[in-house]
Each structure stands twice: as C-alpha cells, then as structure tokens.
Computed example of a mutant assay.
Amino acid sequence: MIIDADLVRTLVAEQFPQWADLPVRPVAVGGNDNRTFHLGDAMSVRLPSAEGYVASVAKEQRWLPVLAPHLPQPIPVPLAQGRPGAGYPWPWSVNRWLDGDTASRETITDLTAFAVDLARFLAALQAVDTGGEPAAGEHSFWRGAGLHHYDDETRRAIAALDGQVDAAAATGEWEAALAAEWHGEPVWFHGDVANGNLLVRDGRLAGVIDFGTSGVGDPACDLVIAWTFLDAASRSAFRTALRTDDATWQRGRGWALWKALILLAADAGHAGAAAQIDLILATAARAVRR
C-alpha cells in the first residue's frame, strides 16, 4: 500500500474540509509503524502502516489527552480521528505538531542532564493513575508484560548467533532477567523509549512522541535506552533519578538484550546491535562482580 502525501490530501479534503487548503508534506524523520506527515505548520497526520499497528489509533486518541497534563514535557495530543477512505483501510489521527529535533549526540548539549530529564518524564508518566487500563498485551506488543513472551525468540537468536556473541553469557543474562519477576502495581509505560521518539530543543529534552506501544504494566521496557543510547555517566544518572531497583534494572537489560539479539540475528552486519550486546553483557558482568 502506498501511503503518500497525495493520499493524505485526499483523506483530509474528504473528512476534514476545514483543513483541505493546508499543505501536506512528509516529516523529515519517519517511523516504521506509522507514516507521518505535516499538515500545515501546527498539525501532523499519522497513519498506521500495517494492520498490526491499528490498535494504537484508538488508544492514543483515548489516553494521550489524559496523560498530557501530568507530564513535564509535551506529548502529541490528538485533534481528530479519521476513518478509512480513499482506498486506505484503517483509522488515522490528526495530532498537534511538536517542534524539536530528533535526539542525538549532536543535538543534546549535556547527555547526563538529558538522561535526568528523561528519567523525570518517565517517573511522572508512571505516576499517572488510570485504574489499570490499558493493560499491557498484544496492543503493546507485550511491552509492559513478562519477558517470557519473547523467550523462544530470544533463545533461537542466541543459538543462531553462537560464535558471533558469547552465547553462554547471553543465555545467563537472559535467564537472570526472566527470573527477576515483576511483582509491583501496574504503571504507565511508553513502550518505545528510543532516541528517535525523543525531541530536543536548545539541547534539552523538549518532547516525547509515538505512544503506539504504550500501556499499563511493568515499566522495565522503558529502560532500554540506557544501553542503546546513554553512556556510562548518563546511564548511572538515569537510573539514580528514576530510583530503579535491581530487579527492574535486570529486566530492562533483558529487554535491551532481546531487541539487540533479534536485530543482529536478522542482519549479521548490524554492527550497532553487536556493540549493544557487548555493552549489555559487560554491564551485567560488572553488576555481578559488585
């Protein structure tokens, strides 16, 4: 299916004629789960790219306005929900546009300060009370649920990568993460805290986007960025500011290991994933020695 600016113009003109004269153009940095377009200067249009991502539309429409007033940085706020049309088969959203550059080592002034800001954002997110809904599950791709949902996939990846990674160490770290079971009360999690979903302005965290895998459950999945983006000093500051206990940190490392393993198994040339696995295992070894 081709999801392009022409399709968006047609959908907007048919369903929201008050915005039909606004220019439509793709965003500079797009994602895989959704296709996003500028609608004028103050709005964006977000369309799921496959059926598996459709559940996020209703979820974001329902919950993002609930979350936004409680968070220290802005998040997308839905302005309208579109319906299938013009050959596009799924619902879609019009959101308020958030200004900012994608987080990177070049756009961030102080990585430790950034990590602390992010930790405070996540702490505020976890503090929002929703009565246990939307509970983690298929709609969140099991983020916020138990790591056992990805046990078979992880073990297959370790077996396939034997010789490229330390299979014994990876298995031991994965099993330690499985054993560090979560027994807390369910809290809000974002589900995909990656630098591509974090916005920076004037060198500081300025917004958080893409809540498609969000929900209520175990927040350990939101720690992955500690090993995929932060350095040693900012990783320590992130953990301290978030007041993360040992078991949750262990599960977070498990989530990071799972993602890096499946990426590397799918693409043997994925140097970034290989480096992340080395870092995850190294930090695990240091934690054991302490």
Results as ranks from 00 to 15, higher is better:
W227F: 12
T228S: 06
T228P: 00
F229C: 03
D231Y: 08
D231V: 12
A233N: 05
A233W: 02
R235E: 12
A237H: 07
R239I: 11
T240L: 11
T240C: 05
T240G: 10
T240H: 15
A241T: 11
L242T: 14
R243L: 07
T244M: 15
D245Y: 09
D246G: 05
D246P: 05
T248L: 07
W249H: 03
Q250N: 07
R251C: 00
G252T: 04
G252M: 09
R253Q: 09
G254Y: 07
G254S: 08
W255R: 11
W255Q: 13
W255F: 03
A256V: 10
L257D: 02
K259L: 14
K259F: 15
I262A: 02
L264N: 06
A266T: 09
A266N: 05
D267W: 13
A268Q: 03
A268R: 10
A268M: 03
G269E: 09
G269R: 10
G269W: 14
A271W: 07
A271R: 05
G272D: 12
G272Y: 05
G272L: 10
G272F: 11
A273T: 01
A274V: 03
A274N: 15
A274Q: 15
A275G: 07
D278S: 01
L281H: 01
T283V: 15
T283R: 13
T283K: 04
T283S: 11
A285G: 01
